[in-house]
Design a protein around this nucleic acid. Structure first.
Lengths: 151, 151
DNA sequence: AAATTATACTTTGATGTCAAACTAATGTCA
DNA sequence: TGACATTAGTTTGACATCAAAGTATAATTT
């Protein structure tokens, strides 16, 4: 038995992310949001938090390529969750805006977020959560410092 | 400022996974493995550890749909890393086997794994790592118990 | 033993994702 | 002001991914 990969934190991270995504999709389906994937949820959550954003800002916030965001946003437009509004100050850019329909999902959405966090962190003390989160920040920093890249 | 999402562990998990994948792809490119994505690496690592496996076993180990594994394996075959060997005991199934070429990458591969772990966990004590890993196990259990699903 | 059910893998179709090329608007600098 | 570079967003092409349907073999049941 090689010593290398146990405890295998990268694998654990990957599995957890998968579990999170599965949970989100399942719950979103339950509240009637069909044909929605986690990235769509990411976009909606981001807009719930920040209001209207340009595609570029969205792309940065959800950490996906601009072409990916174009595709995701256009799908959400087709499904009636978003509209685009021209940016008068810069004709190249457009604001992504939530529709009424999207806003009706705001509260259930936040509920899902909350209950996922509850499940995720159940039986962990506030202290534990803080420690865990600090470890995760540490890992991110480790990578960013290594690559000398900024975000 | 809403209280909800800070500290946002799901987001942290997702970002870290992305950083891990970026790191792996970059390093694999450096050692001359082109056109490789993390899933391919997953397959190779798994075979390095376990030797020959059937597609079904692989699919379980890397936690991806069997049709996905078919596609990934066939790409790796096309690129000369894998071959298929019939399972004489069950004509439905086939073993996925590493080629010589793949085996030449075994050591560099393990090096990359190791150095990634080193970077990831730099400046963390053995104790810290154990605690972190335990938290991650806890999170996985929280999800699995919630959904009453087995893995 | 024949019919049914289950299993291992492949194929197909849909979609998220990215990188690279493209378009249009803006900024810069000579 | 006019050439050049930069930027915001879209389009295109490649590919990972999954679910569902399809195919061939194995296991089970009657």
């Amino acid at each position: 038995m090689k010593k290398l990969l146990y405890c295998n934190i990268p694998k654990q991270i990957s599995v957890i992310r998968r579990l999170i995504n599965e949970y989100l999709v399942t719950e979103m389906n339950k509240i009637g949001m069909k044909n929605i994937v986690p990235s769509h949820g990411d976009i909606l959550i981001t807009l719930f938090h920040h209001g209207e954003l340009t595609l570029k800002q969205l792309s940065f916030k959800i950490r996906r390529d601009k072409s990916t965001v174009t595709a995701l946003v256009h799908k959400l437009i087709k499904n009636g969750y978003l509209t685009l509004r021209p940016n008068e100050e810069d004709k190249r850019s457009k604001y992504v805006c939530l529709t009424e329909k999207a806003n009706t999902f705001k509260e259930p959405f936040i509920s899902i977020s909350n209950s996922m966090n509850t499940i995720l962190l159940q039986d962990m003390s506030e202290e534990d959560k803080k420690i865990l989160s600090k470890y995760l920040v540490k890992i991110q920093e480790n990578f960013l410092h290594e690559g000398e890249k900024e975000d």
